[in-house]
Nucleic acid binder design. Structure first.
Lengths: 344, 344
DNA sequence: CTGAAAGCGCTTACAG
DNA sequence: CTGAAAGCGCTTACAG
């Protein structure tokens, strides 16, 4: 039954045409008589033929696949709901375009470099760069390797960003500002922030937005602690924040998991949520929506970002490279985790 | 700078040998004089040559990549921490073997079929089948397509399972039994179960194990409600369970997310955890470990399963197909979410 | 609108 | 131990 897959030659033979014509009938790169194309399609169907990707790749030097390397520790990948949603979003547009997605999760920088090198050895046409850092080395790395790339960001591109790599970005700053706004309106002034790892541009963007919003209202942004997106760090940061006697009445977390762990810790140490402590998350995970009370969070449209990133990369591969594209899906989702402070 | 990647011909020329010898020096399929191989490697290094995957794939009819299609709704993929950990585990062994991982997330059965067909068109050598269902159609589908496969399960293979597809399995039953045991020892008798979608073999395995353990202790397993692994279903199932007046004093959930949502709901309706309601999860997510109190759960070693599944598939591709392999990493992790019932 | 042929960059019998 | 050549299954100028 399996074994000997049919080749384009078999189809050509069965349809009584040349291999070139079969190819053309499928690619549509040049007209084929209607009657001929029907015969070809019929033959292909009965033989159950589909073109071999490797042969196509070799002939066209296009692999029809794009690559994604994820360079976070496994606990974090598992904990952060961003990746799977982002990937699902990518897939939706890739599948439609007949493209594949090659994934690589790596533990350190050497493995990361190796991954891009493998990608460049004819495995993928382009890559999406996630978790961009200040002065990130990857745009240059992948350019040298001859890979087309797009990168994700949480803010518009700077002038000194490497040119040539389109940036797909959200504007997280406005949403974080709105969160702080909401808290201040409710009567809070001692508001803390638990950030993500500050080597990431997106974590810095959110922290800076937090600080800016506080300052704008004459408040000192002096309660900031750096987390790493894990539940463990959320709990520890919360413990540290709640330890002093001038403790915050509200905490803005850089993701939902840290917020949930923090909220749970606060509760177990006797605080009521939201009466004694208001909290907000970021990323709007499914769990947050179904907690009681629900967690006020920021929906960043991870799947939409995946879709836009994929579309932008496909466009770049097609020669249509734009400088940057804004994904306009960042919106604050209000739920029950904010209340006026009990002891303002 | 980029453009014209060097070919094996360039290396051969630079090293003063034939292309065949370069190939052999790298594959080691036949001896090459030490001095010759040194020249070849040196030439390859200065030219920065690595073999083109597409050319290799065409010549050997091996793609050196394996495929994974995930057929769950995006919210569930995002919510369940199993997938990312499983994938990370796969990657660790694949990277070492120089293999790639091609991912596909699909929305319905047609898209799933299409995904396997694309895979079979020379994109991957083999696939790992997840979320196996009763009488699953995929083992036959992929066999017809000529793909080597392994499938994951939560119990040993049955006699009437399709032969030829190696099964990589855990024994979830024992762990679920132990959970029920723990609860009974603590004094519970009104114990409920919130299962996963019962079309999955693993969900049925866990539910049956729950029922068996209850029966073993002379208790009626009559409080079972089917969830779908989302937080929403965990909350709803919990609400239904807690609604009656003969409500359970303990709930065994089929995953952590449902447990966390359920626990949150119970708390908000006035119950103390664990005093008024004991709960257990499944899968041991990072969040569960850092909640307060921590959630008693079952660690199933998702990453280890990924690694074993990948290794088993590589072996099968190498012609070494075994019937089944047990992954022996399922262990109950006790945390603070179990206590004696307050009103036994 | 269609065919014959070269070429993509490897691997692998076949000779020596 | 090494070389020359065929072949993997496509695509794409080049002719007609």
């Amino acid at each position: 039954m399996h074994g000997a897959r049919p080749t384009i030659g078999d189809v050509a033979h069965a349809a009584g045409v040349s291999k070139g014509t079969v190819s053309l009938a499928y690619s549509g790169k040049r007209p084929v008589a209607e009657e001929t194309r029907r015969r070809i399609f019929a033959a292909a169907e009965t033989l159950r033929w589909t073109a071999s990707s490797s042969a196509q790749a070799l002939a066209t030097s296009r692999t029809s696949t794009i690559g994604l390397v994820i360079a976070r520790r496994p606990e974090i990948i598992a904990t952060d709901t961003f990746f799977p949603r982002f990937i699902a979003g990518c897939e939706a547009v890739l599948a439609e375009a007949g493209m594949g997605l090659m994934l690589n999760v790596v533990a350190d920088e050497d493995a990361e470099t190796a991954a891009y090198e493998r990608f460049a050895a004819g495995r993928v046409d382009g890559v999406i760069l996630l978790d961009v850092e200040q002065g990130d080395r990857r745009p240059n790395l992948v350019r040298e390797l001859g890979l087309t790339a797009v990168m994700l960001s949480a803010e518009p591109p700077h002038e000194n960003d490497p040119v040539g790599t389109p940036v797909v970005y959200t504007e997280d700053a406005a949403a974080v500002g709105e969160l702080v706004e909401l808290l201040i309106e409710a009567g809070h002034s001692r508001i803390a922030h638990v950030s993500g790892p500050l080597r990431y541009v997106h974590a810095v963007a959110r922290r800076d937005a937090f600080a800016a919003a506080m300052t704008r209202h004459g408040l000192l942004p002096d309660r900031i602690v750096e987390g790493d997106f894990t539940a463990a760090s959320g709990r520890d940061a919360t413990a540290a924040l709640l330890d002093g006697d001038d403790r915050p009445t509200a905490i803005v977390y850089a993701n939902d998991v840290m917020a949930i762990a923090g909220l749970s810790y606060a509760r177990s140490s006797g605080l009521r949520i939201p009466e004694d402590l208001s909290v907000t998350g970021f990323d709007d995970s499914e769990l947050s929506a179904h907690l009681s009370p629900g967690l006020t969070s920021v929906s960043t449209g991870a799947d939409v970002r995946g879709a836009v990133a994929a579309r932008t990369l496909l466009a770049a591969l097609g020669g249509d490279a734009r400088r940057s594209v804004l994904v306009d899906g960042t919106v604050v989702v209000r739920r029950g985790s904010i209340a006026p402070p009990s002891r303002p």
